[in-house]
Design a protein around this nucleic acid. Structure first.
Length: 250
RNA sequence: CAAAGAGAU
């Protein structure tokens, strides 16, 4: 049963929902447990097959908080905020994961008020939920509010820092993004692929050609992150920018 | 063995 469940998850993760379903069907009713059902449900949700997900959910012999959160995710991901709220309200229990999933749904729709309300009512918060709330502000174009929250959150991790770097890289205050990036390195956190891209973007927009190159060239040795396609694209932007400047001079 | 948070063009 264990290995069957793992197969379902593996297929689902790679987008092979139909393969996952075949495995699920091959198990037969007797061998399926709650985890098999949830893994299959997750497969449909991940691949945006909300109707199939609903069908799975309704057919499940037993549902738990994980299956409910999965359905919530399915609705929110496909832009059905009202449905997501209905699922959320119908859940028999909540935990920090389901609350955070609901926060994310609000973030996607820019419902700052509802998100704040939920966030302050949550009986429990962790780094993930704090970061989801940062993202609510970020996506609503409220960097200052994100910064205030960031300043008081207990244990920001690399994703929390990255939200901040990215937010400032995109709102016309690249200098703040660069500063934040430098601070996260000083804090001893390991920059991620995304945070490195964001700081490069910030430099590009500030016209800091040298510094952008610097981040690009040292990312592997200093941070253990091999440059990816997106980092090269950013360099292309940077070079285009330099080219334009040169043309303007001529 | 299953569920929640970050990415410019």
């Amino acid at each position: 049963v264990l290995s069957w469940n793992m197969m379902i998850s593996a297929y689902a993760q790679r987008g092979f929902v139909n393969e996952a379903r075949r495995t699920f069907d091959a198990m037969g009713m007797e061998k399926r447990n709650l985890l098999s059902w949830t893994a299959m449900l997750h497969g449909y949700v991940r691949n945006r097959r909300v109707e199939d997900a609903k069908c799975m959910f309704d057919q499940m012999p037993v549902r738990n908080i994980v299956s409910w959160t999965e359905m919530l995710q399915g609705c929110s991901q496909t832009g059905h905020l009202a449905q997501a709220e209905r699922v959320f309200q119908s859940m028999p229990q909540w935990n920090v994961v389901s609350w955070t999933a609901m926060l994310k749904a609000y973030a996607l729709n820019g419902h700052v008020e509802a998100a704040e309300d939920l966030f302050y009512r949550m009986p429990e918060r962790n780094t993930v939920s704090w970061t989801a709330m940062l993202q609510v502000y970020a996506q609503s174009g409220r960097p200052a509010e994100a910064m205030t929250l960031f300043g008081v959150m207990p244990e920001p991790d690399i994703l929390s820092w990255t939200v901040m770097v990215t937010t400032y890289a995109n709102c016309g205050h690249g200098e703040v993004a660069v500063e934040l990036f430098q601070r996260l390195v000083l804090e001893g956190l390991k920059p991620s692929r995304v945070s490195l891209l964001s700081v490069m973007v910030a430099c590009t927009r500030l016209g800091l050609v040298q510094q952008c190159w610097y981040y690009f060239t040292c990312m592997k040795d200093d941070h253990g992150v091999a440059p990816h396609e997106e980092h090269y694209s950013c360099l292309v932007d940077l070079l285009e920018r330099v080219g334009q400047v040169d043309q303007n001079k001529v």
